[in-house]
Write a protein that binds this DNA or RNA. Sequence first.
DNA 1: TAGTTTGTTCAGTCAAGACTGAACAAACTA
DNA 2: TAGTTTGTTCAGTCTTGACTGAACAAACTA
Lengths: 168, 168
Amino acid sequence: MPDTADKAISEFVEQMGLIIQSEGLPRIAGHIVGLMIMHEGPFSLTQLAERLSVSRASISTNTRLLEDLGVIVRHAKPGDRQDYFRLGQQPYARILRGVVRRMRRARDVIESTRDALPEGMADAQERLQELDAFYEALTESFLNVIDAWDAETQGSTKQKRDGVRPSP
Amino acid sequence: MPDTADKAISEFVEQMGLIIQSEGLPRIAGHIVGLMIMHEGPFSLTQLAERLSVSRASISTNTRLLEDLGVIVRHAKPGDRQDYFRLGQQPYARILRGVVRRMRRARDVIESTRDALPEGMADAQERLQELDAFYEALTESFLNVIDAWDAETQGSTKQKRDGVRPSP
DNA sequence: TAGTTTGTTCAGTCAAGACTGAACAAACTA
DNA sequence: TAGTTTGTTCAGTCTTGACTGAACAAACTA
């Protein structure tokens, strides 16, 4: 009953669009990733456009975006002018790195605000400090996950992966 | 030089709008939180509207939203008909809980897709498994941060806070 | 040479949802 | 009673940015 399978696949591709969208990326980027999870590929730009019923312009823009994030990789087949795409290494960890970058920017804002704040506002300083500590804990936590992922997926060496980074 | 301070404050409020927006919440919600970090308050709905130069309707909607998330709390002053708002306990952890909820929903999608997928697609199954494991690690990691936060901020008891949850 | 194919870019359209103004109900005051 | 004040809700506007179609450059083919 391949009908059920097809339904499940397109449903998943659709949902991945929404999930990725909630991470602040375009929906089509999610569709591409979803499709590549379902089928290894590789896919040409035209194939992606047809399969997702979307303009080649959109595919071009979004493959570029995902490529910049390191989520997918582009490669050429010898004797074929088309570009082909497939998932890169640790695609999810790549997305996470983007989140870490966002948090670093947020912490910059906090820091410069703290610097500019006058003496009198001790309580505001305290709350800013609390917010910054929160971001710090979160960043630390993310990096743990990324590290663990790198070690597990990549290294056949399978080095330390105890879930906690060594305390500073 | 209170001018510099005012500038820093409104700059921060503005930036918090953008930061919160990148988390998928309305910009004004971020402005409210930002202002409350700068000044403890409490603020009435009218005060917030005036201070942020925004309609009372928007404030009403967004305070409601933040209240539902548990980020701010509403309370009454005796002999005053107005509602007053201020930051709640562990406001940032509350926002994080929302993220955890989103991830749980994503994992549900993954699971039902795996169930519906036919035998033949073993490699797709494998990639789905990988994605699910990633979400699992991330969720675990978030909950650690939330737990640690709860323990540190709230409990004077300061119970176990070793950075890792007990394995199931 | 002219004609394809492929990927990119850009101006324009469209949709989602944030925000507003106005109308409203509830609780108060004079 | 009529008139305020306060918070909510809803229809409508407006902004943001995703997506498209068309034009284009580059690399190929005949």
